[in-house]
Amino acid sequence: MTIADDAPLAPVVDEEEAARARRDRINRIAKWTLPSLVMVFSILAWHLYVTINDIPHYILPGPMLVAQSIIDDWGLLWPAMLTTTRLTVLALLFAILGGVALAVAFTQSRWAEMSFFPYAVILQVTPVVAIAPLLQIYVESAFLAALLCAWIVAFFPILSNTTIGLKSADHNLEDLFTIYGATRWQRLRYLAAPSALPYFLGGLKIAGGLALIGAVVAEFVIGRAGTGLGLASTLLEASYRFNFGRLYAALILISTMGIVIFAITSLISHLALRKWHESALNRDT
């Protein structure tokens, strides 16, 4: 029996695979274009709603007015944004330093963990809004008080995730390190730290968002007493003055900051894990 004689001469096209490739291509484009379209239409609808119904700007400013405010008030908004950014980034930085250092201490010493972990939890579960006024009394600099607030909020997910991560090393690898006589430092450096990396980066993503939230809350509470701090203080002040154009402008900038922080922490996580971790894998099919 000769099968070759019956074989088709044209290259075989698998309909299912071709359809899948087509779908993937469309998905790749749609992932960006669809949300962009939604945004364009929303802004358009917002603009039409405001102009057709003649909504006064102190109830809902139109998108044009908000855009105008961003441009006109840039001299005011830009320094405010810098302050909020500094607050957020510093809080996140200290959260990383404190969270990782404490997590390492916890995993190196059971006694340290037993003694201090409950207090880290208490610090976390006490609403930062309730602590802020106290900090305002005891800490002279408004910036420093706000920084402390944002730090308290951001630090816990780093501590908690890193602690779990440092303990998550493969047990057989632990045994292997023991057999080869690894020192404490080698165990931490070559086993516990890489095992903890995905957990730490997960914590970092959460902490990035929380640092911004902490900064905004702190500015609301602490910046109120005329000590204009950053964007959130500007937003609050604009609301007192019924300057809704500026209020919306500040809101948009805060939201943009949140998006940028999320994008940066996601990118860091992707770059650090793409070679080996399951979470960063692109499935072939």
Partner: peptide, 14 residues
């Protein structure tokens, strides 16, 4: 001493 476990027990990051 060298040891081989039931699982390959490799470091996935290396």
């Amino acid at each position: 001493l060298g040891v081989v476990f039931q699982e390959p027990t490799l470091m996935p990051w290396a």
